[in-house]
Nucleic acid binder design. Sequence first.
DNA 1: ATGGTTTTTACTGCGTC
DNA 2: GACGCGGTAAAAACCAT
Length: 313
Amino acid sequence: MLKQTVTYTTCPECESKNLVRDIKMGEIICSLCGLVIQENTVHLGAEWRSFTLQERMSKARTGAPTKYSDHAKGLSTLIRVDRDAFGRPLSPKVKQQMWRLRRWHLRSSFHASRDRNLSDAMNELQRLSEKLHIPSSVQEMASVIYRKALKKDLVRGRSIAAIVAGSLYTACRFTKTARTLREISETSLRHQKEIAAAYRLIVRTLKMKMPIDDPMNYVTKIAEKAKVSSDVEGLAIKIIRSAQSKLATMGKDPSGLAAAALYIASKLKKEKVSQTKLAKAADTTEVTIRNRRKELEKRLNLHELWTARLAST
DNA sequence: ATGGTTTTTACTGCGTC
DNA sequence: GACGCGGTAAAAACCAT
């Protein structure tokens, strides 16, 4: 098979310059639309592929719901401190030595279990990041968040995969990387609710100050997915901005709002984009787009839309 | 647990290509 | 007919209390 040797600087699919070289997978991908531009060398990821959930579950060695509490089971050999092998009481001096030994025993196995937890978690994080094409800097941040969560004992009694997904989502939100909770939960082994709970837990206990989920962050992603011109995209951004100043944006699904803004913009520019397309790109429904559109057109009356249009043409 | 808000699902009629 | 568009009602999901 012939290898493609052309090197790109922009994504041929969406014109984005945001290309990422993924060492592990040995390929170059567009971090916005996820297109794999160049597949070249060694593939260091998982050697198996899976097509159904069941298959994935059975093949995955990393994502198994290993519980933190399992580690107690490895500790069947407790060192006794009060009596010797014949059941006779020990002298205070020996007793003290035994306490020390016991403490080290506990401590070392604790460390071992923590290491295993961490390596499991990092494997899972790697898997998710590959599938979702997460920029490595964001992935790095997710791993830091996970370590902090581990230190705060948040993983005990919960599934590692859920906390990992939660950490990843937190990192995405924090860095304004446009990945929805649903996208993440669909590639994770855990359910969306569980991951959302993990996210809230992480934010709360680590006292992270999160930036609000800005519809603006989704505009470019949706625009490129639905193949909308950058002209329309710019207008959509203006629409959202003025909507935000008019406080018409709170409590609403941000990606739905972004899609509606794009829809209005495309209509104003007579560049027809169907609701269905936008809805699919935004991972929402046509109804939501219609509702947002109605609200937007009501709040920012036609006059403003016209001036916005004039300003951009 | 519950009630209020938002999104989704499913179904409708209308116009156009 | 197929498609896009707009609306509605009811179910489901979400959130604060």
